[in-house]
Nucleic acid binder design. Sequence first.
DNA 1: GTGCTAATTGAAAAAGTTTTTCAGTTGCCA
DNA 2: TGGCAACTGAAAAACTTTTTCAATTAGCAC
Lengths: 133, 133
Amino acid sequence: MAAELRANGHKLTPQRLAVVRVLREATEHLTPLQVLERARGIRSGVGLTTVYRTLDLLSELGFVRRVHLGGGCQAYAPVRQRAGHHLVCQGCHHVVDFPCAGLTELIEQTARQTGFTVASHLLEFEGLCPACQ
Amino acid sequence: MAAELRANGHKLTPQRLAVVRVLREATEHLTPLQVLERARGIRSGVGLTTVYRTLDLLSELGFVRRVHLGGGCQAYAPVRQRAGHHLVCQGCHHVVDFPCAGLTELIEQTARQTGFTVASHLLEFEGLCPACQ
DNA sequence: GTGCTAATTGAAAAAGTTTTTCAGTTGCCA
DNA sequence: TGGCAACTGAAAAACTTTTTCAATTAGCAC
């Protein structure tokens, strides 16, 4: 991630690296406030403004994804596999990506039926992971 | 919708009916503030608090669905077909539900692969409707 | 109809979240 | 090592959402 940031012309500040590390290590979705707390554990003095800015940046670059289920809407989860979609556990709130081969077909079918051209999509499943069952 | 509200033990106040009518007539997703403006066109003096409360209520009863794409997260769209999923047009912001037969299979497949039990899901496509293309 | 009661309402306040502003700091390239 | 654009944090502003509370009202029983 750091290398990619660099490649896209962004500076590698300690604040940014702290946020990146928090997200890389997270297995749950985190709100900006939770990201702040954890980032401060790595480097004290990180500001909330910077967390918001860094989340925006990482989101633009595709490293994190906004997660939407469960009432709240403003949580982020790291993207582990490109083009995957995700499962959210209602027990431990962990987020797991999964590859979904069948979706392309579903998109095409829907496009045919409705006449829409589909540009992007959001697919989230919510349930219980094996450990929480 | 009014009949269902009644059946679930809720009162049919003019404020509630105004919000219900706004949502029933909407073909786009609306923020609480937009719902307020339109509801005031039907009955002046509706309060924002009431709009929030009514949206919660209708959401619980399954008459409206929270829509999440496009940056913002706090918009509602009326549910036209039960158990449908939706397409959002990037041009005119209209929301169209579609039945998705293929999804059940995809859920089962994902459950098998990951060991999760899937309780609920959210599927949104974003693109351009025939008129906007 | 009339009266009762619990549900509902709107305004205001409080709480919470996100964005903007700005002066100061700092990573990175030459 | 110096210069400068990018970046930062604090504070303020802007917004959104929830809570509180006294007043109102829909719907039921009579």
